[in-house]
Simulated assay, not measured.
Amino acid sequence: MRAIWKGAVSFGLVNVPIRLYSATENHDVQFRQVHREDGGRIKYQRICSIDGEIVSYDDIAKGYETEDGEMVVLTDEDFKELPATSSKEISVEKFVPAEQIDPMLYDKSYYLEPDKASTKPYILLRDALEKENRVAVVTVSIRTRMTMAVLRVHEGVILMQTMLWPDEIRKPDFATLDGESKATKQELAMADLLIEQLAGDYQPDDYEDDYASALQALVKAKVEGGEVQFAPESKDESGEVVDLLAALKKSVDKAKASRGEATSGSAKPAAKASAKKTAAKKAAKKAS
Rank of each mutant, 00 (worst) to 15 (best):
Q203A: 07
V137N: 12
I50D: 15
G7Y: 10
K43V: 07
Y207K: 01
E93K: 11
E261K: 09
D38Y: 04
A221H: 10
M163C: 13
E53N: 11
I42T: 13
D210E: 12
L245N: 14
L193F: 01
A3V: 12
E113K: 14
G69T: 01
N26I: 00
D205K: 03
L159D: 07
F11H: 14
V96S: 08
S49Q: 03
V9N: 00
T176P: 01
L245T: 11
L218S: 12
T144W: 03
S109M: 08
K43G: 15
V153H: 08
A214R: 06
M148D: 15
A149I: 08
M148C: 13
R143S: 10
V9M: 05
L20P: 07
H154M: 09
K182E: 14
Y207L: 01
R143I: 00
T66G: 14
E70A: 13
D76Y: 01
K256S: 03
V55M: 05
D38T: 01
S22Q: 09
K282T: 10
S288P: 02
G239S: 05
E261V: 00
A175L: 07
S56Y: 01
S141D: 14
Y122D: 02
E155L: 02
V16W: 06
G239I: 01
A117H: 14
K281Q: 14
P172H: 09
A283S: 07
Q30S: 08
E208F: 05
K88H: 12
G179V: 03
P166E: 05
I50K: 13
D210A: 13
R46F: 05
D206T: 01
Y21P: 03
I90R: 11
E180H: 02
K182M: 07
A191N: 04
